[in-house]
Design a binder for these strands. Structure first.
Lengths: 341, 341
DNA sequence: ACCAAAACCGAAACCGGTTTCGGAAGGACC
DNA sequence: GGTCCTTCCGAAACCGGTTTCGGTTTTGGT
């Protein structure tokens, strides 16, 4: 080999640990230890190595590192349906929580298809992700994913049916309760529920919460039952018309979603009922675009989805660190008061 | 070494190429070549190796592979603002295009912050992604990202200000033209535009398209100018009231977005103007939740965002393969006709 | 049966780090 | 000055594959 140390190469391209070691006049072994703050390396040499590394702007090769160390600092996130407005805030919260550490996120969308999910999990396993975050498209419990590995998994939004798994889901029961509580506290007594589709756990849970809270106040649902239907505005419009015309004692309507609530508001407006003077309206989801500029602005129960994502991410990080939290956690929600109630 | 070949170990854990080679009675070199269908390996041995690999369900170590080969089969996707409804379809389209190959996607959200973007790019570089997809939050051109590497980059939605870069963005000019064309073809002549915020390129481009198409038909904008305002319903409501009360010749209103269009519809409904009989309304974005259940259902220009994502992904794949398409590409949009126009 | 050419296989180097382990340098103490 | 620890450093093995390159076997032709 030539004696000429030579000046640092045009830094671009690839500068390896060997280069750093040579520049610092030490062996690669020492360089490695120095940069990783390992076993007693003399302060002076450590500084020398660090200086060399900095001046060459050395970046350790991620793959060489990952090759031995079994930790990849990467987690896999599997969504059931990216084209779903509920997953965005969750993704954001999770990405936030991970990104602030130095975990990278591998994203895969399963298109709500079990086979595709299986395939993506396979790929993620091959990439040796440290953990898996599985985001559902509804809050309906789903069968756990199966794979031959024991990396930690956290289910978000849609909990796993297996209670040994770790799941994080919004507390829809509480959401129902809070909606009622908010209304009762402002003096409402004739409270009706225009709900979403019966096949959705979210709709069922919210209804249960509504009924439970009403019972706590010695009340029951106006009309006697939760009206399950569809999630859209049309259902809200039609249903509101029936309710208002049919039962004059109604002074509040809880809508299964903001979208439904918009329909309810439209009908009330058409019928000349004043909101909230005559009838109060509460929705669920607190979806900006629907609630802030409605007439009047809509009081809604915020599902704290971003928080949900963050909590799930934190759980996964904990699980990777060895402290798992098995079981379902129901995350708190809160009412955002606006003019409609 | 012991002579006993021994039965395949309990397959779980980690089975390496060495194990496969031993099981097939060949060297690791041969095993590698066989599995990668490389230089002439006898058909029989190849099959034997493949059988061995299958029976041990061998998965090559991703990192060992990546360590020599400079291709990682991973691309980085940087979003400026995940909490933005426009990015979802784009993400979906891109993820779709990539996933169908065997590319994995590393997701990072920059929170619309240059520093954070820089940081994430750094991380992605360290992971040696094969390419970068940068998704903007508006269609306003943005300064190109800077980094010390020459991997291909494609900008989506927000194009790069540098025309040497590859950008894919929706054709908002065409969108404006198509909205007008649709209205003119059904006989409208008094066409007004209730636009979004003037600081958005999307608003400017659509306005330009509207005016250009009107000119082609010998018309001009009712009221003389595009009314820039905000993107919300309230602006749509207020503006519609002024327009309709001020100029009886107006028989169509183009709204800068579906959201604005909803406000316009509400006002028309309140004033007793029939849609589309008296006045036609067209929106932009074709956002399901706003257009399908409005009264009446809203005709809207669909920006083809999912297609946009797919095209961008394809461009990136091409660029990685060596065939780049520098410059901006404006992707087609189309009108989805419903009852309102 | 014999030889050159073609086909096939395996030892070893390599990708770029981390870790083990033995040895050298330096200091304290007798 | 010699012994015994410490402390610090470096050679080499290793992670799990891919690739080169030389040697061995097969094939094909006569």
């Amino acid at each position: 080999m030539s004696i000429t140390g030579g000046p640092p190469r045009e830094a671009s391209g690839k500068v390896t640990l060997t280069d750093v070691a040579r520049a610092a006049g030490v062996s690669v072994a020492t360089a490695s230890k120095a940069l990783n703050k390992r076993t007693h390396v003399k302060e002076a040499t450590r500084l020398r190595v660090e200086a060399a590394a900095a001046s060459l702007d050395f970046t350790p090769n991620y793959f060489a590192q990952a090759l031995n160390s079994s930790r990849t600092n990467t987690i896999g996130m599997i969504t059931s349906d990216l084209d779903n407005r509920f997953v965005l805030p969750i993704l954001l919260g999770a990405e936030d929580a991970f990104g602030s550490g130095s975990l990278s996120v591998l994203l895969a969308d399963a298109r709500d298809d079990v086979l595709r999910e299986q395939l993506h999990i396979q790929t993620l396993m091959a990439r040796k992700v440290d953990g898996l975050l599985i985001v559902g498209r509804t809050t309906n419990p789903r069968p756990p994913a199966t794979f031959a590995s024991d990396i930690p998994v956290v289910y978000v939004y849609a909990p796993s049916t297996d209670d040994a798994d770790s799941s994080v889901t919004p507390d829809n029961h509480l959401a129902g309760r809070l909606a009622v509580r908010h209304l009762v506290e402002s003096g409402r007594r004739g409270i009706a529920l225009v709900n979403g589709e019966a096949s959705y756990a979210a709709a069922q849970d919210r209804a249960a919460g509504v009924i439970a809270e009403l019972a706590d106040h010695g009340l029951e649902l106006a009309g006697g039952r939760a009206l399950f239907g569809q999630w859209g505005e049309a259902w809200g419009r039609d249903c509101a018309r029936l309710l208002v015309n049919g039962d004059p004692s109604i002074d509040a309507i809880i809508a299964g979603s903001d979208h439904i609530a918009r329909g309810v508001l439209d009908t009330l407006h058409d019928l000349g009922r004043r909101v909230p003077h005559d009838i109060a309206v509460v929705g669920f989801d607190n979806w900006d675009l629907l609630v802030t500029e409605s007439r009047p602005p809509l009081t809604s129960v915020d599902m704290n989805l971003q928080h949900l994502g963050r909590v799930a991410a934190q759980r996964l990080v904990d699980a990777i660190a060895g402290v798992g939290h098995p079981g379902r956690s129901y995350e708190a929600v809160h009412v955002v008061g606006r003019e409609s109630a």
